[in-house]
């Protein structure tokens, strides 16, 4: 095992500067989300400025919002909601989807047919609409949001993983494992998973972007994270009144979302590639 590891480390990897920048921004937001309470200059809920929609000043780096609260502190705390909820939802969606997808691909038969049909049908409900319907039915809270977002993105993850697994499943090495007498567990875990894990992780990243966008959209409509808490989408909503003045309070949360999603995309499109022609 140790020998195997060494040989893989010996392989060269090509790093792309765009990917590195993407990684740095993603890492920045991850750190901010974790350390927000330690860094935030003001308590999130405290009104610190007499003026509302204040401009960027030395004291309030990102201006103040419609109540005169410090935007920098709110953005930092908002990162917790946006990143945290999205991450939880996407992890849940991908875990469920990938597990079901691989199982369906390997077992086939009616299990595969029924599950695929059902999840395809679920997938044909536009995602924002699904969010609206659930919030209308159950009301909005953080656990409900996570569960809803996970349900919305499970069919996609399932479909993706299943398609990959079906391809791998037709490979002769899986047939060889079958006629060797291996069980379904070994085939899924040892033969199929290692061959689809790369694309699955990249897909998880893309899906994370979609979840962030959907969560922000729902919050923007007032159906996501509820006051007094606020994620970035909710901040755009509560400060939309500042739009005619071009207040930083409207612009900054949007930019925060864009910086996160675009950098995740940059990272995924430019993951370190293994160099195959090492024989030089």
């Amino acid at each position: 095992m140790a020998a195997t590891l060494r040989s893989r480390l010996r392989l060269g990897y090509a790093l792309n500067p765009v990917g590195v920048v993407g990684f740095c921004i993603v890492a920045f937001w991850a750190v901010m989300a974790l350390a927000a309470p330690l860094i935030a200059p003001h308590p999130v809920g405290e009104i610190v400025d007499f003026d509302y929609f204040g401009p960027m000043t030395r004291e309030f780096w990102l201006g103040t919002d419609y109540l005169g609260r410090d935007m920098l502190s709110r953005i930092l705390m908002g990162a917790r909601y946006t990143v945290g909820i999205s991450l939880a939802a996407v992890a849940l969606a991908c875990f469920t989807g990938v597990t079901l997808g691989m199982t369906a691909a390997v077992t086939g038969g009616w299990f595969d047919t029924v599950l695929s049909r059902f999840l395809d049908a679920l997938n044909s409900i536009p995602s924002k609409l699904f969010g609206l319907v659930v919030v209308a039915g159950i009301g909005s809270s953080i656990p409900v949001l996570i569960a809803t977002l996970a349900v919305i993105y499970t069919p996609g993850a399932y479909r993706f993983a299943r398609a990959l697994a079906v391809n791998v499943n037709t490979m002769d090495f899986v047939t060889v494992a079958r006629v060797r007498g291996e069980g379904t567990g070994h085939i899924i875990g040892s033969e199929i998973l290692p061959n689809i894990i790369g694309p699955v992780l990249a897909d998880l990243g893309l899906r994370f972007v979609f979840v962030v966008l959907l969560l922000s959209g729902l919050s923007f409509l007032g159906l996501g994270v509820q006051p007094p808490d606020a994620d970035w989408g909710a901040m755009v909503r509560e400060n939309i009144g500042g739009l005619p003045f071009g207040a930083p309070a409207v612009v900054v949360p949007s930019l925060a979302i864009a910086s996160l999603t675009i950098s995740v995309n940059m990272l995924i499109d430019n993951l370190p590639r293994r160099i195959r022609d090492r024989s030089a």
Partner: peptide, 23 residues
Amino acid sequence: TIGVISVPEFMIATSAVLLFSVY
């Protein structure tokens, strides 16, 4: 296109308002 796909719709809408109505 990647840029547009990666940002929320309300950002495009608010940017349009900022550009065409405000400025």
